[in-house]
Amino acid sequence: MTSKKILDYIKSIGIAILIALFIRAYIIQAFKIPSGSMIPTLLIGDHLLVTKFIYGVNPPLMDKKILVFDKPKRGDIIVFKYPEDPDRDFIKRVIAVEGDIVEGRDKKIYVNGVELKEPYARYSDSFIHPRELDLRDNFGPLKVPKGKLFVLGDNRDQSYDSRFWGFVDLKDVKGKALIIYWSWDSENSKPRIERIGKIIK
């Protein structure tokens, strides 16, 4: 093989790597579910594709997003930087957006005074925690500040979310969960074939 061919191969590989990095940074990214906080919608071992560009992109050295096509809406499942440790990514469902008033009363969620119908929510503990114990089942009312989101896990009794650590900043949202491309059941050491290709909603 001549040095010219070797150089061409190196250039091709370099371009492919740059394209892959660009796609991961700004277009779409893979994400694995590590915990049960989003059961039954998302299971431990689900592998997702997350669309990043829909909520805008963060160019290097800029603290503001550009090319914003849409903002997170109530009901969207989003990946974001965990406010207490920005090096970690969390995934939760948007319950309230800026300007909304959100409240939890005895495991029921109200936004702007209206109880949400939540077929996706799961409650595994019949005991209702009083506000004096913690904010799991009773919290608020809270007004969502400008540029913020209030998020909850679908597995309400087993989720560490906005009830405990507060709001998510819009600039820290990385993308919207789109589709399950692979799912592995580690307890039974087998793939969950029926989940592959499932649109997340």
Rank of each mutant, 00 (worst) to 15 (best):
Trp184Leu: 00
Phe22Gln: 13
Arg195Ile: 07
Ile101Glu: 11
Ile19Asp: 04
Lys108Leu: 14
Ile13Cys: 13
Ile180Tyr: 13
Asp70Glu: 14
Val94Ser: 02
Phe167Met: 06
Arg88Cys: 05
Lys65Arg: 02
Phe69His: 10
Leu21Gln: 12
Ile180Pro: 08
Ile77Val: 15
Lys148Phe: 00
Ser183Thr: 11
Trp182Arg: 12
Asp46Leu: 04
Val94Trp: 00
Lys32Thr: 12
Ile28Cys: 11
Asp89Ile: 01
Leu43Pro: 07
Ala30Gly: 15
Ile33Met: 08
Asp185Tyr: 09
Glu118Ile: 09
Trp182Cys: 14
Lys64Gln: 12
Lys108Ser: 15
Lys108Asn: 15
Gln29Leu: 06
Tyr9Thr: 15
Ser3Pro: 00
Lys148Glu: 02
Asp87Trp: 08
Val79Cys: 03
Arg24Glu: 14
Ala121His: 03
Ser35Lys: 10
Asp172Phe: 10
Thr51Lys: 11
Asp154Asn: 10
Gly175Glu: 00
Glu103Asp: 00
Glu103Leu: 03
Lys4Arg: 13
Glu115Phe: 09
Met38Ala: 06
Trp165Tyr: 15
Ile200Gln: 02
Ile19Leu: 11
Asp46Phe: 04
His47Asn: 14
Ile128Cys: 03
Phe127Gly: 01
Lys201Leu: 09
Pro60Ser: 04
Gly140Thr: 04
Glu187Gly: 15
Phe69Leu: 12
Lys81Met: 01
Val173Tyr: 11
Lys171Gly: 03
Asp106Tyr: 03
Thr51Gly: 11
Gly113Asp: 12
Ile101Ala: 09
Ser35His: 13
Leu43Glu: 11
Phe90Met: 06
Lys73His: 14
Glu84Ile: 11
Arg105Val: 14
Pro130Arg: 13
Gly140Lys: 03
Leu142Trp: 03
Phe80His: 12
Met62Cys: 05
Gly14Cys: 00
Pro34Thr: 03
Phe80Val: 04
Phe22Gly: 13
Tyr110Glu: 07
Trp184Asp: 06
Arg105Tyr: 07
Leu178Gly: 05
Asp100Ile: 13
Pro40Trp: 15
Phe31Met: 12
Pro34Cys: 02
Ile6Leu: 10
Phe22Glu: 08
Pro86Val: 06
Ile78Gly: 07
Lys190Leu: 09
Pro40Asp: 12
Asn155Trp: 00
Ala177Gln: 05
Val57Arg: 00
Leu48Phe: 10
Glu103Trp: 00
Tyr110Gly: 02
Lys190Met: 07
Val173Cys: 03
Val94Lys: 04
Pro34Leu: 03
Val94Met: 04
Phe90Cys: 05
Ala25Asn: 10
Pro72Asn: 09
Ser183Pro: 13
Gly147Arg: 06
Val111Ala: 13
Pro34Asp: 01
Ile193His: 01
Pro59Asn: 02
Lys171Phe: 10
Ala177His: 07
Phe167Lys: 09
Gln158Asn: 12
Asp137His: 09
Asp157Asn: 09
Leu170Lys: 10
